[in-house]
Amino acid sequence: MNLPVPSGSVERPRWPAPSRFRRYQGPVMLSLLAICALVTVLTTIGIVAVLGLETIHFFRESHVSLPAFVFGTEVDPPKFGIFPLIWGTVMVAAGASLIALPIGLLSALYLSEYAPRRVRAVLKPALELLAGIPTIVYGFLALVLVTPLLKACFEPLGLKVDSYNALSACVVVGVMIIPMVSSLSEDVLSAVPRSLREAAYGLGATKFEVSTRIVLPAGLSGVAASFILAISRAVGETMAVVLAAGRMPNVTANPLRSVETMTAYIVAITGGDASYGTPKYLSLFAVGMTLFVMTLGLNILSGLILRRFREVYN
């Protein structure tokens, strides 16, 4: 056989050596990107540092003890009891959840199980648009639409409705978080494998049975996580609550009375005449810290549920 034997010196093609620009661009960009990622970490550190330091500052200036702060029932200085604010916040969040969670879950089930493809293609963007409406709009609606409606409903029954009241806040915040519940739950429910549904249908189950006994249990952890995220959102909601629920820190179970939430208090302090460094001004940081801890706790809980109870299908 006569194979061409390579001679001693083969001319290898010459690639241009990487220019200095090309050699350094990668590492330089990498460090810039790392700095970007660092910004997110620094944001967290910043939030914790600001809230923590100023909260300590508050406790030092105001001479309020921690139990007196948490359980005190008088908001005004020099008592600085936050309990009425927590009460108002929990009340609004609970009422909003009563409205949003069932409706959100049902519409998630509809979108993932019942809706024909073309209906879905219209409804999903509509829900997304709804989620894009700013909260100030909901606050305005509470003021000009919901509260007058409530007055028309309840005042003939002899019940007094405050012009700022907790119920209208519950209604608008509830409506506001529906898209969040439905879109997060729908993602989870759609991810339940098709084989589970078809097995159930094959055994003669109806659509209702497949939805409630197969799909829902399979996606339960995700649905629960979306519920908790929505509640956390309701707790942190500000403008709708400021305009709907008002500024009266009442501890009451009557939803037709005015209540004050933590977020409303913070807005009121910034808009007020308290100057920097006074205990009244610093109290906004302490209230903000409480709010931050509550929402962070809920968010972490939601993540834990998602990870701990996730059903894994192969």
Partner: peptide, 13 residues
């Protein structure tokens, strides 16, 4: 977690 922080907390920050 940052995505879940209420917007008013960013205002405080």
């Amino acid at each position: 977690n940052l995505a879940g922080v209420p917007s008013i907390v960013y205002g405080i920050l």
